[in-house]
Amino acid sequence: GPNNVSMGELDRIAQNIIKSHLETCQYTTEELQQLAWQTHSYEEVKMFQGKPRDVLWQQCAIQITHAIQYVVEFAKRISGFMELCQNDQILLLKSGCLEVVLVRMCRAFNPLNNTVLFEGKYGGMQMFKALGCDDLVSAVFDFAKSLCALQLTEEEIALFSAAVLISTDRPWLMEPRKVQKLQEKIYFALQHIMQKNHMDEDALAKLISRIPTLSALCTLHTEELQAFQQLHPETVNVLFPPLYKELFN
């Protein structure tokens, strides 16, 4: 293997991450397949559109927070993550958890009709109109569609999620070398699996090229939250989940 990592070790890393991913997904692949064509009716979409802006924001903040709790659990089960110093564990999760949520979201996205699972059924972008941030919503939908186009397997989604989370690009890491070693192994494992699964030799490069978009989406989310908070400070302070505020405020 590359850099003195044996194939046995890469395989162990891959198996651990895939298992961690499958154990911490909100929905199994089977559940998502069963739901895939259950879409919100016209009346249900109208109902979302008719909600006050702050109510829908709160609802989305709760959903995101819920998804993040699963991502924290995913991180904890990755071999080596809990061996990082606590500063770096917190830093990686704080800066990467929403990116992982967005990667995981492609599992619950139907690219054939551009709908996403929200509140039990699938619905399109128009469902989120009342949020008042069409740019962010359409960018998130575009991202999900572009990731779906790569037709990743569950194993690849797992390894890519881990690679996004365990990243040396985050500022203020205390032990960047330790994070780098772990990240390199994850990438080797991802590369190995993708070479096996895809005819397209550039599949990994295409996947990696989505990372800047991920980070741009998170920046946009922070900006939209700040703009929302200026208009609805009470909603954020009183009604938003404490974990959401801790991570994004």
Binding site: Q69, V72, E73, K76, R77, M82, Q86, Q89, I90, L93, K94, P242, L243, E246, L247
Partner: peptide, 14 residues
């Protein structure tokens, strides 16, 4: 500073 995240990391994996 990151009280809840800290707490989630401390909780034993269920």
């Amino acid at each position: 500073k990151h009280k809840i995240l800290h707490q989630l990391l401390q909780n034993s994996t269920s």
